[in-house]
Amino acid sequence: MFEKISLAILPVLILLILTFGIVKKVPVYEEFVEGAKDGFKVSISVIPYLVALIVAISMFRASGALDWLGSLFGFVLERFSIPTDIIPIMFTRSLSGSATLGLFSELAATNGANSFVTFLAAIMVGSSETTFYVLSVYFGSVGIKKFRYAILTGIIADITGIVLAILAAKLFFPASI
């Protein structure tokens, strides 16, 4: 059901916009091409920002520094009897979407698709957005270099999301622990 609706949204939206354009006598082909020209410029202009961010994050992940952070948080999580397998996802979900999905699939495969830690991870992944990627691409596309409080806002929302995901998992899936 949900799947069918979400598959239909985009085509229906495109049809609506085009029909509205034709009805309002907009030269849809010419305007489409005119708008599409910007796609190239914008995509290319984010490259320097993406290189800076993705290289820094790739280095961080390759260095094993994530494991240090993990062992630091391990103590805290164990006190609340939360499986420490969740740690890599906690940190990666703000940094990289594809890496998070990879970690999630791996975690669900190792722990079983009906385990508590899998549900916890599912909520964490499902409610997240890759904060640092969004910030660098969006600000990068218009050349903003001083982000002011955007980073702090993103981080606070991410931390809230992690804490709430833990609470929600404990509340909704107590039997799976």
């Binding site: 085009l18 009805v23 489409f32 796609g39």
Partner: peptide, 13 residues
């Protein structure tokens, strides 16, 4: 390019 094209139609209409 695709979405900016579609969005331009949405804007002009």
């Amino acid at each position: 390019a695709f979405w900016l094209g579609i969005m331009r139609i949405a804007e002009k209409s």
